[in-house]
Design a binder for these strands. Structure first.
Lengths: 273, 273
DNA sequence: CTATGTTCTTCTCAGGTTGAGTTTTACTCA
DNA sequence: TGAGTAAAACTCAACCTGAGAAGAACATAG
């Protein structure tokens, strides 16, 4: 952008840290969606060393000078490259994508090639299509989170565990914990739903992400009582694959950015200490 | 750490992003403490361009290869350099320091010299001594947060506003919001207190950080009822600068890592939408 | 067409938590 | 010794939550 005045250039050049202490920057994306009632994360199979052939989170180097990009833009670009979706298409699947920064991972040695720090991002979307591998990923697919055996109490398929490259298992675990927490006090769950949804559909999102069943009646009362969480459209859902019962009413996301009072998940006693 | 096998080296060299797209990495620290009943942040006056003479958050470049360091270690080192305190001294002021990652800022152009992304950290400590300028900071001092006029509703001294270098005003604002939020559901407030403290002292921390007065009776009941928040030492505080009333009992931090139920701040109605 | 099962939605009620205020107690200061 | 102050304990109404039950609307099997 703006250049420093000419008389400072020489001085600054002597302090340029790139000259002696290079650090590279990547973005990685924990992209979550719900498919067939299960929480899925987007993984790519690495085509190059290191960790060639292993599964990893989608990501890549930030463009620093040529086409200098924001960190969030880099995350969106990487996600689009790995899934083959247009990041900017109006009405496209990535338009309603919720993207936020997760954390930055920079332990020395986390990448055996060189010093790399990774700015991890968290993405949520309503059921995205199957990815078509692009970029430098040999393969990209949605993987059920509960098939990865992330040392979460219960709900893991033993034996199906596939180790992730780098420190991506930890990044994924942090992303899941962040997602679970954000459902409590933000209307983020609506980002997993289509533009119009029913209360039972919203409840299914909570149950899927939290991994526990909720009391249908209390959930219903709570969702409608939190101001700005959802607003009624007036319509009702038609019967598609439903097994009985009245047609649930349709809602869309309200204008609240925080849920107050929050929708706390039950059974957090373990995590307190 | 571990080196890739010899046969991969050549291949990787061609993909080294440093060769064509350099990005530099810094850490910045939002160090908060409470002095004289007001929330203070550590600022340094920049001795070099850009923004020479302006106030900024303490920070500096991450050591990538020589003495490669963790991001948190880099933040702790920078904080120690600017304050002149030993980062590792047993029993020293920085030993009880709470340090956590805040977020990473990487908009192109945020540093006019080159592409720099900054991993911001948040630090809390009980009243630290006045810093002695070290490193490349011309000057370092604690500054009352309410003297910076950060477009927070109320409680700002108009005219005393000093603009911060880079995007540090935004980083500071984000750090303050994070600190305020964390007081709600973690025992972080005890990090602002000496090892033994009273309930009124703890309440003063909340009032200072949140910027609003709390109901003393309800606060007392709440703090003692949340499991693991504080535990009684059996002793009482002696009269130092107190104006009357019985001697309050002493407590120390309990073993809880999360407060449940949380201690919600009043009047968040504005922020919800 | 009827019976049965499913599920959305509303209702009830006991228990816990919160906000606001009051009382008691213990101390300082003039 | 009396007035002022603040810690700590108590009271009470309002609200929120968890658990269960009931009613209503629909699908499906016979």
């Amino acid at each position: 952008m703006n250049q420093p005045p000419q008389d400072e250039r020489e001085f600054l050049a002597a302090y340029d840290p790139r000259a002696y202490d290079p650090v590279s920057v990547t973005v990685d994306v924990v992209a979550l969606t719900i498919r067939d009632g299960a929480l899925n994360v987007l993984l790519v199979r690495r085509g190059q060393a290191p960790f060639a052939g292993m599964w990893a989170l989608p990501g890549g180097f930030v463009r620093g000078v040529t086409d200098a990009e924001d960190l969030a833009s880099a995350a969106r670009r990487e996600l689009a490259e790995e899934t083959g979706l247009d990041p900017d298409a109006a009405g496209g699947p990535l338009e309603r994508l919720h993207l936020e920064q997760l954390a930055t991972y920079g332990a020395p040695g986390r990448d055996p090639r060189m010093r790399v720090i990774s700015v991890a991002h968290l993405a949520f979307a309503p059921a995205l299509p199957d990815p078509r591998a692009g970029g430098d990923a040999a393969e990209a697919t949605w993987v059920r989170v509960d098939s990865l055996g992330l040392s979460e109490a219960g709900a893991q398929h033993p034996g199906v565990t596939r180790a992730l490259a780098f420190d991506h298992a930890r990044i994924l675990a942090d992303g899941l914990e962040r997602a679970r927490g954000k459902l409590e006090y933000t209307p983020l769950a609506t980002a997993f739903c289509p533009p119009e949804f029913t209360v039972p559909e919203l409840r299914a999102v909570y149950e899927t992400v939290w991994g526990e069943e909720l009391h249908a009646g209390n959930f219903h009362r709570k969702v409608l009582s939190v101001p700005g969480f959802v607003e009624a459209t007036g319509g009702t859902a038609d019967r598609e694959g439903r097994r009985g019962g009245p047609r649930p009413k349709l809602y869309r996301a309200g204008d609240a950015r925080l849920l107050h009072p929050a929708l706390l998940r039950p059974s957090r006693e373990e995590e307190i200490r």
